[in-house]
Each structure stands twice: as structure tokens, then as C-alpha cells.
Design a protein around this nucleic acid. Sequence first.
DNA 1: CCGTATCCCAGCTGATACTG
DNA 2: CAGTATCAGCTGGGATACGG
Lengths: 118, 118
Amino acid sequence: MEEIICSANDKNKKQIMAVHDAMDVLNGKWKISIISSVCYYNQRRFSDILNDVQGISNKMLSKELKELEMNKLVKRNVLDTQPVTVMYQLTEYGKTLQTIIDTLADWGTEHRKVIIGK
Amino acid sequence: MEEIICSANDKNKKQIMAVHDAMDVLNGKWKISIISSVCYYNQRRFSDILNDVQGISNKMLSKELKELEMNKLVKRNVLDTQPVTVMYQLTEYGKTLQTIIDTLADWGTEHRKVIIGK
DNA sequence: CCGTATCCCAGCTGATACTG
DNA sequence: CAGTATCAGCTGGGATACGG
């Protein structure tokens, strides 16, 4: 009986650690919003993301994108145009975040109704 | 045809806004980790959460819990013991976050494998 | 045990301006 | 367009100590 309780606790700890591991990569005020922009549009330019993510500055966007690149979640593509066009998209690995983003979008949609209802 | 593209874009915008709305409540370095602790244990004491959420200080935990209370995601229960015991649990509304937490835990579990694999 | 109070600093962040 | 540079303010967050 005690072992069951114990193993149940261990499982909880693991779940909590797993959430922590996920948040390690998704930390920062803007990261998840940026990912959602890139994710829903498949491809997205710097200035577009700047518009999508309400309130972010170019400095922060630049910084957060770099971190996402370092974590192999986002890929940067420079197109040979004049002036330069830069496209951001999710890497294959980044696409595994889709479920998380969708779940957040669903909850956010419902949450908005609750808030507006007040 | 153009209308389809346009409405598709509108849909993307809405999704991005929805994610943004969700993150509005889940902002802060620790909030999601705290919720996962309270959520997986159903009930959790202040000092337990302090242990679960690796790296958080009592000051930050106190502050974040207050914000979660204000947003009606977490409920605070004071038990009449000596010394006082305080239990935190998710409200009914907070429980609607379960799917998000689970999704994050799943991704985090896989992500950990990838990282350790390196 | 469950916090609050105080001190204090690194780094996050916004604003503005500037470059290729 | 896609950033970088610089300045300056604010806040997140640690350490420590204390109160109910």
C-alpha cells in the first residue's frame, strides 16, 4: 500500500519535472506567442511577427527568436530579395509543439468568453 | 478565392490572440510549474510546492500564488491546526487547465529524452 | 509552518535612433 | 525590411531576517 502511494508520488514528481523541462525552453514573456504566430502561418516574416505579437519590441523579438533558433525550434530563412526578406518557420522539432499551442488556443478562446462575460 | 485567404488569416489572428489571452493568465517564470504541482497532487501545502518547484523562493511563490488566486485558478484553504496548515488546490475553473498541463508534461517528457540523448 | 519585510542588484524591457 | 546600438528605468528575484 505504501509502495503504491510512493510510486504515485514519484509519478507526480516526474510529471512536474516534465512540465518544468518544457517551460525551460518556452520561458520568457513572449516565446509562446511568437511560436504561435510562426506556427499558424507556417512561414512568417520578422515584421509580421512584430505585428502579430501585440506589445513586443523589435529588440525583444530579435532576442527571443535567437533563443528559439538556438533551441532548434525555429528556423531562419533569408531570401535573396531587395531588400532582404527573412522568413521564420518551425523546424520539424518545433512542430511537435503544435499540440501545446492548439491546447492553449482552445483554452484561451474559452477564457476570453469568461472574461468578456464579466 | 481571396475571401478564403482572408478568412484564413482572420482565423490565424484569432488563434494567436487566443494563445495570447491564455498566456496573460499564465505569465511569469513560475506560474505553470506551480499549477502543475497543485494540479497533480490535488492538494498541496505551501512548503510542498516550494520543494516541487525547483529554484523558486518563498517570496516568489507567495506572490505568484496570490495572482493565481486573483485569477480564480487556485483556491487557498487554511486548516485549523497548530501551527497553521495551508492547502492550495485548483478551483473548478483552474481544473480546465489540466489538458494544457498534461500536454506540456507529455512534450517535456519527450524533450528530456532528446536533451539527455545529446 | 506560512508567510511578510527589507535590502539590493542583474538583467529584462521599452524608447529611440541608427545601419546595411 | 530586418535588425543592432545605446540609454535608462523597472521589476524579477535572491538573501536574510522576522512575525503570527
